[in-house]
Design a protein around this nucleic acid. Structure first.
Lengths: 209, 209
DNA sequence: TAAAAAATGGGGATTTTACCTCATTTTTTA
DNA sequence: TAAAAAATGAGGTAAAATCCCCATTTTTTA
């Protein structure tokens, strides 16, 4: 293929996003169409522009994170390939973003060269087997958030804040006892024993910011 | 001045570090000597090489973080200017790194152009007044860690883990009651009401990883 | 439409945290 | 060396969190 690969970069850190875009732009085969601080910018862009062939997607972003953005793309623009990026090389987070429809994952701790290979390979073959993908395939990792029910997912971020159960119950319009039950289930499913532990886990997985 | 500004970049994210280095290398006035994943790499480098005139220093890094690395540079290589960088634009963290001896702070959310200006200005005048520095000067921010005593600093990360007071006491070789007292003081000084709150604060300040 | 899963919430017990007061010893600093 | 700061720890209380049990209603799925 000699066509230029059009790319959009989504990452909340301007300096990273811009310098990576500049770097990628030095390759003849790649053209960075646009870059956004979160998925929302991309969504608005797609309303009036042709979609790129590929999106480099950070996982942890404000407003609209990588999980939501990837799910959106897969629903409305299924042909757009997504390569997920993250600074936390957490197997559950990787499993989650792949489950949302990402074609590949690269770590921000990888060499920049790795992302070039990923771009070229994903564009040509639809996948790229690096160490992260091999690990996922070998260990059949189940994404943590998959284990949680809809209600549990809404309770989770509240448990990761300094709100009391009283406040969480009030915000969620349910009784403290129900919050209690949901907490029980979440703890069991994610294998933690305290809200502090849960918060550390959630931060580590990009589930809460 | 027409001399080339020699720079070292310290940041644990390879992809960011490398692509930023490539970007900075495109400027005639700047030469990126070397880049490291943490302060320890820089320390080893300085044992056998001439120091750079400037270091771009991430705050949150494993092994040897930005605070420690800046303090080290100021003690043994006081002529080397440090520009601190971070993804969390936390005023207390900025105050802390400036207190350790950094000449300027730039956020990873700033435009890449901002770092160029900072480099040129710090190299020429020793300082660069951007919005972060203005805020610090205007509000006379006192770095949080400054408020804590030595013992409190050692207890802090333990409080941010899921250890019980029993375990913390055992690890620290003091009674639970003493842990209790230290916790009291830390909470008051940092104005938090729970360990979960403390952990979120500490993560947000790059105090714990 | 029947079965399964999810969401709801009451009762109750134990543990852990949070927050006081007070006092002694050790270390640091002026 | 005297004063100040830091580290130590006891006693006690109230609140919050953790972890069980149980059952009913609602929603989803096969």
């Amino acid at each position: 293929m000699n066509t230029v690969i059009s790319i959009v970069v989504c990452d909340d850190h301007t300096m990273f996003r811009k310098s990576l875009s500049l770097y990628l732009g030095t390759f003849k085969k790649v053209k960075v169409l646009k870059d956004f601080a979160n998925g929302h910018g991309l969504v608005k862009f797609l309303q009036h522009h042709q979609p790129p062939s590929l999106v480099l997607m950070d996982i942890k972003m404000p407003v609209m994170n990588g999980y939501e953005s990837t799910a959106f793309l897969k629903q409305y623009y299924p042909k757009v390939r997504v390569i997920a990026m993250s600074s936390f090389d957490n197997e559950l987070a990787i499993a989650q973003i792949l489950h949302m429809g990402a074609s590949c994952f690269v770590s921000k701790n990888d060499e920049p060269d790795e992302i070039c290979k990923a771009i070229l390979h994903v564009h040509q073959y639809g996948y790229y087997m690096n160490k992260w993908m091999r690990y996922q395939q070998k260990n059949q990792v189940v994404p943590a958030m998959q284990l949680l029910t809809a209600k549990e997912k809404t309770i989770l971020p509240l448990l990761c804040s300094s709100k009391t159960y009283d406040e969480i119950a009030s915000i969620s319009n349910i009784s403290i006892k129900t919050v209690d039950r949901h907490r029980d289930e979440i703890f069991k499913k994610l294998n933690v024993q305290s809200r502090l532990n849960l918060a550390l886990f959630a931060i580590n997985n990009g589930i809460v910011v």
